Amino acid sequence: MRQTRRIAETPPPEECDPRVEALVNDLIGRVADKWTMIVLEVLAQRGELRFTQLFRLVRGVSQKMLTQTLRHMERDGMVTRTVHPVVPPRVEYRLTDLGASLGAAFCGVWIWAEDNLTRVEDARARFDDRQT
């Protein structure tokens, strides 16, 4: 069984596969993008959705940004895009198992935020008070 490595406890292996390192860096950048996280969450909660439904549910996103986000997610294997041959064309998106597992992996960030919200807010307030 593979063991989870804690960042502060164990240095990275000296012979780290550069492809794995590149993928981790790429995914962190992509998932740190708020639109990817929101799309992951919406699709996890709602299942398969048409583009227009996603656009309504992902508040604040432009059509262009949603399209770009979905293309990146599709390329990475996180969502599947199904085009139905009707007039007008109907396009639907759903999470793949890979996308669902990524969402589950980052769920820990939400749990951490819930557990530490007050501590972070207090620290920010103390910092801001010192700056004024």
Results as ranks from 00 to 15, higher is better:
R90N: 03
R56D: 15
V83R: 15
Q53R: 15
R6A: 05
R94D: 12
R90I: 05
R130S: 12
D76R: 12
N116V: 07
T96K: 03
W110E: 03
P18C: 04
A113E: 04
R46S: 02
P12C: 13
M78R: 00
R19E: 14
R19D: 12
R130L: 15
V24F: 07
G60N: 05
R6N: 03
L40Q: 02
R19P: 04
Q63H: 08
E121Q: 04
T69G: 04
V31S: 00
V31P: 00
R130H: 01
R71I: 05
K34D: 04
I28P: 00
L40K: 00
P12V: 15
L49E: 08
R130N: 02
P13Q: 09
L43Y: 13
L57P: 07
E21W: 03
V120A: 00
K34H: 12
T82S: 14
K64T: 14
T69Q: 02
V87T: 08
L117Y: 01
E92W: 04
P12S: 12
A44S: 13
E15M: 14
P12A: 15
V83H: 12
M78N: 01
L57M: 14
N25H: 06
D26V: 10
L57C: 02
M1Q: 15
A8F: 01
R75D: 10
V42H: 09
